[in-house]
Nucleic acid binder design. Structure first.
Lengths: 335, 335
DNA sequence: AAAATAATTTTAAACGTTTAAATATTTATA
DNA sequence: TATAAATATTTAAACGTTTAAAATTATTTT
């Protein structure tokens, strides 16, 4: 790689000191450098195609103007979209994004955090994995600006931007009930993470409010999603008194579950009603327009960047705890 | 943000010079530092939770151990998957990834390249946008290691990892012909980029080889994808002698086209046959299993990282020009 | 024309690291 | 016990930037 042009090169060419060049090039105006020298330096900088070395700037300023984004999996459309919005919003504020995928594993998350800290990111946006609470606490203790997204730890004071999982789930389940279903199963992830537990609680409370005591929650391990979802569906359909509705707690669970229901030739909503938390391009091709919970992803990601940038600028502002509402979009999948 | 622990802090604590600490901590062994001092320094470093400042290392070494990834849109599953694989492969080689989305615009691509150069990335993996040829030439002239992915410029000597677009398209079109279709339309993007032109050429040659002179290529502008795809489909179906098959040249075009065909209640493959270049989660929900071209995305991304890392290590190795085969996966959508 | 003031430019240190070269210390050899 | 040799440690410069403070030069003011 060709040696990059530095202030030194410009200084030599212009016959002035490095400092003079720096003043001219890094302050917008009023630097006390003469008009003539200013112009000469600017001309030479342009001629030599000077590009400031951001790394040197970072070392000097202690700011990298970089934010670390940690999600479960950047190839999951849910997170990919978040990443895209974070990228755009961050750029608006002059920040670059370095991302990493934790695969929902605390160990990978820890590696990523270390890695990104070494690279001196100015702050983090994290969709925390289960068991990563101590990592977040560590960052807090180090006063590293951070915003949790999508999930958070209720017992930990942090900035976060999440959605009203309980309400959304309560509403979705309520819709199934209102449509006459009363044996409603739920397929969720096996995780203590609050967002998932809230979705389950919303489901349970909705049933309880209707005086229904039979709940069927199937918690799926990340390590064997497909087989466990299929097992859960099998179980729910093969009970003595099978379910008449299934509520999938995420995008991925819904896709896998619906694919399996297709394979079983279970007809929706005739044989069983379905609601999915999250949307997906894929659902547009499902023969039956789905009823699903639409998360305000754009707002969530945008807000997260805003909060983070604010925290970086002034770490002593109080915590931002933001819960956004989700919308139940009605299709024909729960009759 | 709390002041980070530096070599200086450790040195002071240990009563030795910074250099000694550096030798102990950065060389694995045989540094000529006494056993006793070595152990003391290591202990103190651990106690203080020392983390090397990667930025300072980068400044000193001239290597950032970062690669820039530029794709059209990170939220497009095609690129999101590439990003994920690049991330994983890069990490294996000790590299971090900074990504950016060009939205197929040369101007955005130029901004991104500047931005990433300022951040001293060691090299680039780029899915180049139309009109970005001069940017790539500039990077070449500056001897910045780079690998093009998915697309390339035939007249420009660079490293690239792409697929055999012509062959794949030829084969796909051949399949439509073999199944008895002979009025075959194609929906592609309006771009001079070679990958798209090759797909169109493959389609044309396949028809020509069968002695069919009626070709219907609709080139869609990025600025109005949905309306133009729908217009193209309308036109193809409302001709005097309508098409009996449609070949969508990408993922996105296919999804939009199929959604529209659904809305028109056009039945596949009864009313019209369909093949799509690329796969998508969404296609799994389409009522008719699709015949599609499956790209070896994993190999492509992995190879791109390998080539880039090799180029960074030794920029004088010759260019790697890699074309991977794609596979036609048979469904029931072309009868 | 000297002194005071203002305008311009340079020096030098700093950010945190690496590393060649110099120096200091210990151990071995004669 | 000098001296040579080997071992251990430090000094100093460098990477490219910023910026306070010092120095220089030019312009006013008396």
């Amino acid at each position: 790689m060709k040696k990059r042009v530095s202030l030194k090169d410009i200084a030599k060419e212009a016959g002035v000191s490095i400092a003079t060049v720096s003043y001219v090039l890094s302050k917008q105006n009023n630097t006390g450098i003469s008009r003539e020298v200013t112009e000469r330096i600017k001309r030479i900088a342009a001629e030599l195609n000077y590009r400031p070395n951001q790394i040197a700037k970072s070392l000097q300023s202690g700011k990298s103007h970089t934010i670390g984004l940690i999600v479960a999996d950047i190839s999951n459309p849910f997170f990919a979209l978040i990443a895209r919005i974070v990228e755009d919003e961050a750029k608006k504020h002059g920040y670059t994004v370095i991302f990493g995928s934790s695969d929902e594993k605390a160990s990978k998350s820890a590696d990523l955090i270390k890695f990104l800290l070494n690279r001196q990111v100015d702050g983090f946006i994290i969709a925390p994995a289960e068991g990563s609470k101590d990592q977040i606490e560590y960052l807090k203790a180090q006063n590293v600006p951070l915003v949790l997204i999508d999930r958070y730890f209720p017992k930990l004071e942090t900035n976060y931007v999440v959605i009203e999982n309980y309400l959304a789930s309560f509403e979705a389940t309520g819709r199934l009930l209102a449509n006459g279903n009363n044996r409603i199963g739920m397929v969720a992830y096996a995780t203590e993470m609050q967002h998932m537990q809230e979705r389950i609680r919303g489901y349970r409370d909705a049933l309880a409010q209707d005086g229904i005591s039979d709940t069927f929650v199937h918690e799926i391990k990340f390590s064997a999603i497909q087989s466990e979802v299929e097992g859960a569906v099998d179980q729910m359909l093969n009970m003595n008194d099978p379910v008449d509705a299934i509520f999938f707690a995420t995008n991925t669970l819904g896709i896998i579950g619906l694919k399996y229901l297709n394979r079983l030739k279970v007809s929706i909503p005739k044989d069983v009603s379905v609601i999915v938390f999250d949307e997906s391009e894929a659902f547009d091709f499902f023969y039956c327009p789905l009823t699903y919970v639409k998360q305000p992803l754009h707002d969530m990601a945008k807000k997260a960047v805003e909060v983070l940038v604010e925290q970086i600028a002034d770490p002593n502002k109080g915590f931002h705890k933001i819960k956004l509402g989700a919308k139940l979009v009605l299709g024909d999948s729960c009759a």
